[in-house]
C-alpha cells in the first residue's frame, strides 16, 4: 500500500475500507470489538434493570417521577439524525468526494456535540434536584449506564474530529478510508445503544 497513491473517483474501489489487508483486518477487528461492546452494555443494562427504583427506605426518586420525555425525545431525534448524516458522509467517501464527506462529518459532529450538551444539561438538572450519583443503587446504575454511553459519544466525537483534522490537507487514500469507515460504524453502534436506552431507561421508566 502506497500512501501517496492518488485516486480519482474512477479508480477509487467500491469498498475502499476493505481493499487492503490492513483495512480488512481493521474492519473485522473493529466489528469484533463491537460484539464485545454489546456484552459490555448488556451487563450495564442488566444491572440497571436489577437495580431500577431500588434504594434506601424512603427514597425520594423513582424513574416514573424523575424522567422527562420532551428532552429525551429531542436527544433521540438529534442522535438518529446524526446517524443519517454519517451515512451521507460514507456515501461521499465511496464516491471519493472528500469535501462533501468532511462537510457531512462536520454536521455529524455538531449534532453529536449538541446531544452531549443536552445530556450534560440533563445530568446537571437531576443533580440539582438532589438525585446524585451516590443517592441510591438506582442512581448509581442510571448514571453509570447512561454516562458510559455519553463517554462513548465523547470518544466518537474526538475520533471524528481527530480524523478530520489529520486528513484535512491530504484527502482520501487507502490508508485513512478504513479509519473513516470504522469511525462511522462506531457512531451507528452508539445510536443502537441509545435506542435501547431511550426505550428501556426512559420510556419504560416513565410508565413505571
Amino acid at each position: 500500500m502506497d500512501i501517496n497513491q492518488k485516486y480519482t473517483p474512477q479508480s477509487w474501489p467500491d469498498h475502499p475500507e476493505t481493499a487492503t489487508m490492513e483495512g480488512k483486518n481493521k474492519f473485522i477487528g473493529f466489528w469484533l470489538l463491537l460484539a464485545a461492546e454489546t456484552v459490555t452494555f448488556a451487563s450495564l443494562f442488566a444491572t440497571y434493570l436489577a437495580l431500577k427504583d431500588k434504594g434506601p427506605s424512603g427514597m425520594e426518586f423513582s424513574a416514573a417521577g424523575l424522567f422527562e420525555l420532551p428532552l429525551v425525545f429531542a436527544m433521540t431525534m438529534i442522535l438518529l439524525t446524526s446517524s443519517l448524516t454519517s451515512v451521507y458522509a460514507m456515501y461521499h467517501m465511496k464516491n471519493h468526494n472528500f469535501k462533501a464527506m468532511q462537510a457531512w462529518l462536520g454536521i455529524t459532529v455538531l449534532l453529536g456535540a449538541t446531544f452531549l450538551g443536552l445530556e450534560i444539561y440533563e445530568f446537571n438538572h437531576y443533580v440539582h434536584l438532589g438525585f446524585g450519583f451516590t443517592n441510591s443503587a438506582f442512581s448509581s446504575a442510571f448514571y453509570v449506564l447512561v454516562g458510559t454511553h455519553g463517554a462513548h459519544v465523547l470518544f466518537g466525537l474526538s475520533w471524528f474530529i481527530a480524523l478530520m483534522l489529520r486528513n484535512a490537507k491530504r484527502g482520501l487514500n487507502m490508508y485513512n478510508a478504513p479509519k473513516f469507515y470504522l469511525a462511522s460504524l462506531y457512531w451507528h453502534f452508539i445510536d443502537v445503544v441509545w435506542v435501547f436506552i431511550f426505550t428501556v431507561v426512559y420510556l419504560m421508566g416513565v410508565i413505571g
Partner: peptide, 30 residues
Amino acid sequence: AFPPLTVGLFFMVFDRMFDSNFFAVEMGGN
C-alpha cells in the same frame, strides 16, 4: 467473557472509591 468482568470490576471500583451503591444492600444494591 471479559466485558462482564470489566463491568463488574468498574462497579467494584466505583463502590469502594466513589461511594456508589451497586453492591451496598442498605442503599438498595445487590
